[in-house]
Nucleic acid binder design. Structure first.
Length: 281
DNA sequence: AAATCCACCAACCGCGTACTG
DNA sequence: GCAGTACGCGGTTGGTGGATT
């Protein structure tokens, strides 16, 4: 069943806002605040629906909006954040003061996607982005240089790490991730330590090392990922990978054995926004 | 000069979810 | 626990203006 558009239903005005309407909206909000968006247009004397008013205010009229072209730094930040957060435009906008999610979304679709298209990702990077692990993020890879990003994203996932309203989770509350392949590679780490490690790696020269073709098995390379499975099982998340062998040279990380390919882990833990968003995680 | 194409961006739309009674 | 309401979000659309043919 299709919900009727609110403006149509009410016989309210649609389309571009006039300067007069802008003025009415701004002066009303400056005087009274926006409070209830639904009631606002009636109270302010606007023939618009509350939704339209909210959009106009948040995307255009808000005093803290930064107008004008995006700087190269801002664009780079968007690319980095999109790499990590996917199409979560509001989360990205929250890290770019003065920019709205709508604006960022537009810039992404009109400029940045093209920029990335011209960028040749390292071999393999898209092979393990199939099967929904990476459904929200493009399969490109790059070096990160914003040292705040991982901490911020950690906050996004777990809530603020410090502060009166958001106490740090105890280690028993911290979720674990278990990666299990048919080669019986099992890794358990907690996400707090993981982000700490990633922050450290982030400050190094090259966050994502090159990987060689042999890292991937034929199963995955041929795109037969039907047996890929991820499921949340209470406190523990089981992740099954379809490949039967992984590079076994390991590094000691977070007190646990991990493969040395950080591109892999990056995709598993960072690019997979869905995985990280699971409340059980 | 006219027609067409294309890029840009403001605004709309519907869905998911938080909130409230 | 449920239903109704309101809001926020991401995807999409449509108008506009500049570039190209």
């Amino acid at each position: 069943m299709v919900r009727a558009p609110c403006c149509e239903k009410m016989g309210l005005k649609k389309g571009p806002w006039t300067p007069e309407e802008d003025q009415v909206l701004v002066s009303y909000i400056q005087t009274n605040g926006h409070g209830n968006w639904r009631a606002l247009p009636k109270l302010a004397g606007l023939l618009r629906c509350g939704k339209s008013c909210r959009l106009r205010w948040t995307n255009y009229l808000r005093p803290d909006i930064k107008r004008g072209n995006f700087t190269r730094e801002e664009e780079d930040s968007i690319i980095q954040l999109h790499e990590m957060l996917g199409n979560r435009w509001s989360a990205i906008a929250a890290r770019l003061p003065g920019r709205t999610d709508n604006e960022i979304k537009n810039v992404w679709h009109t400029h940045l996607k093209k920029r990335l298209k011209n960028y040749q990702p390292p071999q393999n990077s898209k092979k393990h982005s199939k099967n929904n692990l990476d459904s929200k993020a493009p399969s490109t890879s790059q070096t990160f240089n914003n040292s705040d990003n991982f901490s911020n994203i950690q906050e996004d996932i777990n809530g603020p790490v410090t502060g009166p309203n958001s106490p740090q989770r105890s280690s028993s509350e911290m979720s674990t991730v278990t990666a299990d392949s048919t080669a019986m590679t099992t890794i358990t780490i907690d996400d707090q330590n993981m982000f700490k490690q990633l922050d450290e790696m982030n400050s190094s020269e090259s966050f994502i090392p090159e990987i060689d073709e042999s890292f991937w098995t034929n199963d995955l390379s041929t795109g037969d990922n039907s047996n890929f499975d991820m499921e949340g099982t209470g406190e523990e998340l089981q992740v099954q990978f379809p490949f039967s062998s992984v590079k076994q040279e390991s590094m000691d990380m977070v007190g646990t054995k991990l493969e040395d390919d950080m591109d892999f882990w990056y995709n598993v833990f960072i690019k997979s926004g869905d995985l990280l968003d699971l409340p059980e995680f």
